[in-house]
Design a protein around this nucleic acid. Sequence first.
DNA 1: TCATAATGTGACGCATCATTCACTTTTGTG
DNA 2: CACAAAAGTGAATGATGCGTCACATTATGA
Lengths: 207, 207
Amino acid sequence: MSPPKLSRREREKLRQRGEILEAAFELFAEKGYHNVCMHEIAEKSEFAIGTLYKFFQNKEDLYKALILEKRDIFDGALRQALKASHDEIKQLRNYVRKKTELFREHIAFIRLYLAESRGASFNLKSDLHDEIRRGYRDLLASLAGVFASGISQGRFNPIATPHRLALALDSTINAFFLFWIEDPENYPCPDEPDAVLDIFFTGLLAP
Amino acid sequence: MSPPKLSRREREKLRQRGEILEAAFELFAEKGYHNVCMHEIAEKSEFAIGTLYKFFQNKEDLYKALILEKRDIFDGALRQALKASHDEIKQLRNYVRKKTELFREHIAFIRLYLAESRGASFNLKSDLHDEIRRGYRDLLASLAGVFASGISQGRFNPIATPHRLALALDSTINAFFLFWIEDPENYPCPDEPDAVLDIFFTGLLAP
DNA sequence: TCATAATGTGACGCATCATTCACTTTTGTG
DNA sequence: CACAAAAGTGAATGATGCGTCACATTATGA
């Protein structure tokens, strides 16, 4: 998109910013927003507290940047997965497969992100929660598009609105993975996309 | 269960305790654990701060009592719904209907409860999160029992393990209602149990 | 080499808030 | 009524932690 016309100094600052975010991420992921203080982030990132405030207006700002920047990457990957085919069933498989991959490789972030996006999040008074919800709705709308297309083409039975189908699928995936994350022994990871998708493809009562 | 052999005084104390919990609940539901101070709870419940500590060891204890006692009531209602029939399909309908009713009538608590049970909750260091998860697993196991029974009787197709079916259904209900709570205009409340259940009964690809 | 700017520092000020406890008020009883 | 026990009170305490700013260090370039 934007040409990386950055001076050495600017690149250096960006790198430092990333290091702060990474250190902060590890702490937040382990203990949650309210149980991490700026002193700890300073310590872990090996900067002074004052320096943190050269990069971020305040603690909340730092946290927001952290969540939203990672969210954007994940979001992009999932949208990409949907675009990688024109066959609705393959689109769904790609989506589930990519989501599986992201969950497996970024457990800590997923936990933090879901804590922020599900239910009411009272961590911050800011608009982070709204921003996350907006993004999630957009993504769901893309997923709903797949169902809408499949239904209008007659490939899918119209058992619910596309939006509800998208919501049902996505929340089911999330639930499966949250259980897996919390207790992998008893709740194995559904590696194959069809482990989730079959629930929606084949009906409980279908003959 | 236990005979209510309580003196006038004891009943009075129990009532007061309930009033404190109710005042605290309204505050927590609006602002979250970390954004409510004991001073506010005292003010709203019209007791002195010191008095709160006659009823609860500390703030965390108060919060735990609040969440768990309400949770128990809801849990009981849902278990009851499952027991009200021996026909698996009716059991599922009863479950979904009762859950709809609870969501509709206790939006504020549901938000608080889901914030506590989903993803990682870092509000408290205590074992509240574990306790909630344990309870949720038990409830899911009961729901899974319905699917297990339906499958072994040949009434349901074995499209996934009973536990996964239970998880898929329950998380889908939760997701539908969370969207409804956040934006009732665009995401109407699925009043009819079959609005959710049809997704699982009828397959997308069934002939 | 030296002056100036840019960058980095962390002790401290200030606010918040959970919890305590010495005291006051109310209640129950002889 | 008198008086002891129980209930209720809220100012004071101490701990925590965000964010500031006067100063120190490093980079730049003349």
